[in-house]
Amino acid sequence: MPVISEPAGFNEEDLYVDLQSIFGRPLFLKCEGFNFAGSIKLKPATEMVEAAEREGTITPDSILVESSSGNMGVALSVIAASKGYRFLCVTDSRCNLSTRLLMEALGAQVQVVTEPSPESGFLGARLEHIRRLCLRDKRYVWLSQYTNAYNWKAHYHRTAPAIARWFPHLDVLFVGAGTTGTLMGCARWFRRWHRPVRIVAVDTVGSVTFGGAPGRRMLPGLGMSIRPPLLDTSYVDEAIQVEEADTIRACHRLASHGFLFGGSTGTVVSGAIDWLSRYDTRPPTAVAIAPDLGERYLDTIYQANWIHALYGDDILPADARPHAGPRQAPSAPSAPSVRSPGTP
């Protein structure tokens, strides 16, 4: 029985879902949302704050500040509350209402940027807002998850070794690409492993991370409107992009079997299943990382009016639409469509 005195003391590392029976493809999903922050971001949030403490960057008067579309903001809210720090999260209008309320419940201040930058979208506008805050008030300590090496080091030291412990014959790892902290940490670790592991980055259509054209992105989490400073494409074997409609379909497919995951997880699963559907030889041992759970998406991905207003009435089959009543599980899997910009 684990007994903890601070929220970062608990994080379930060894839970996997076998998706074979749901999607008809051999894929193990590493569930990262079972901690007090509800996502994989608790690990880098802890690493970044503890590094700043060691370096003397944080003082009793400091106000931690970070740009986040949701999960990192919640994770830092948890850490700040447990350590007695003040925290300001700068987000934008795409952040789920439930996520903003959760951060505020934990004592964080939330500022919402409503107008995107013409050149760099909402992310650029959020970063510029933080720069202005830091210039006006020296008490602000910007952790900068987009450039902070402790973002990827958290996954180098914890996430990748945890996967290797259970899958010594791993062939391919699917990792979502946001700040690319998880991607870079895992890719660097497996590059040094005793056997080759194919690293497949899963991005969203409309993201520019791997050179794709910028476009509308309504789901927070994966994807960037600027190239991630942490990204080193020499560690990535392949990058694939997933349409947001397919993200939603994957989330609902999982929910129909009792697994309520978030948008980032739906994107990773959608891309991984499509990639595996094109694998003609012996099925590889494949793992995908699920960054988040689905409760914070109840008013978006799992809300019928929101889906239909943004993506149309036909995004889901009639028997899979929210509030459609009981239905039987589909008899045969169908792979979602994925667009790929090619190997970086």
Results as ranks from 00 to 15, higher is better:
residue 316 L to I: 00
residue 35 N to Y: 12
residue 287 V to S: 11
residue 318 A to L: 15
residue 174 F to S: 14
residue 146 Y to V: 00
residue 120 S to R: 14
residue 86 R to W: 05
residue 292 D to K: 10
residue 26 P to M: 02
residue 64 L to V: 08
residue 137 D to F: 02
residue 113 V to G: 14
residue 121 G to W: 06
residue 156 Y to R: 00
residue 295 E to I: 09
residue 314 D to R: 15
residue 33 G to W: 13
residue 300 T to I: 05
residue 344 P to H: 10
residue 3 V to R: 07
residue 268 V to G: 13
residue 96 N to C: 02
residue 301 I to Q: 02
residue 283 P to L: 15
residue 169 H to Q: 13
residue 244 E to T: 06
residue 78 V to N: 14
residue 63 I to E: 14
residue 344 P to L: 03
residue 230 L to W: 04
residue 146 Y to T: 04
residue 188 R to G: 10
residue 268 V to M: 03
residue 155 H to I: 02
residue 223 G to P: 07
residue 104 E to I: 10
residue 196 P to L: 02
residue 324 A to D: 05
residue 290 A to R: 06
residue 208 V to W: 14
residue 64 L to M: 03
residue 133 L to A: 10
residue 247 T to G: 01
residue 209 T to V: 11
residue 156 Y to T: 11
residue 338 V to E: 03
residue 91 T to H: 00
residue 341 P to E: 00
residue 217 R to S: 09
residue 296 R to E: 00
residue 231 L to M: 01
residue 176 G to K: 13
residue 76 L to Y: 09
residue 79 I to Q: 14
residue 233 T to I: 06
residue 96 N to M: 13
residue 123 L to P: 15
residue 159 T to F: 07
residue 113 V to K: 11
residue 271 G to C: 02
residue 134 C to T: 09
residue 344 P to V: 04
residue 99 T to V: 15
residue 118 P to S: 03
residue 121 G to A: 06
residue 79 I to K: 15
residue 311 Y to I: 03
residue 23 F to W: 09
residue 145 Q to A: 02
residue 327 R to M: 01
residue 220 P to S: 08
residue 115 E to S: 13
residue 323 H to Q: 11
residue 23 F to A: 11
residue 61 D to L: 04
residue 135 L to N: 10
residue 309 A to G: 11
residue 191 R to Q: 12
residue 35 N to F: 11
residue 193 W to G: 01
residue 196 P to Y: 05
residue 138 K to F: 08
residue 31 C to Q: 10
residue 138 K to L: 04
residue 195 R to I: 09
residue 255 A to R: 13
residue 63 I to R: 15
residue 10 F to H: 10
residue 56 G to P: 02
residue 21 S to V: 04
residue 150 Y to A: 11
residue 100 R to L: 09
residue 36 F to M: 12
residue 40 I to T: 10
residue 151 N to D: 00
residue 162 A to V: 01
residue 245 A to W: 00
residue 134 C to Y: 00
residue 125 A to W: 12
residue 191 R to C: 07
residue 306 W to H: 07
residue 220 P to K: 03
residue 292 D to I: 09
residue 50 E to M: 14
residue 148 N to E: 03
residue 313 D to Q: 13
residue 117 S to R: 01
residue 198 R to M: 12
residue 280 D to L: 06
residue 344 P to E: 01
residue 85 Y to M: 08
residue 259 F to Y: 12
residue 330 P to E: 10
residue 143 L to K: 06
residue 37 A to N: 02
residue 114 T to C: 05
residue 54 R to E: 08
residue 153 K to L: 10
residue 170 L to A: 13
residue 62 S to N: 08
residue 101 L to T: 11
residue 261 F to V: 11
residue 22 I to P: 06
residue 147 T to Q: 03
residue 113 V to D: 15
residue 283 P to Q: 12
residue 173 L to K: 04
residue 253 R to W: 13
residue 21 S to L: 08
residue 179 T to H: 07
residue 251 C to W: 00
residue 314 D to N: 13
residue 32 E to Q: 15
residue 23 F to L: 14
residue 300 T to S: 14
residue 18 D to N: 15
residue 140 Y to R: 00
residue 117 S to K: 01
residue 199 I to N: 04
residue 253 R to C: 10
residue 22 I to D: 04
residue 58 I to V: 12
residue 150 Y to I: 00
residue 219 L to Q: 08
residue 191 R to I: 02
residue 294 G to Y: 05
residue 57 T to P: 13
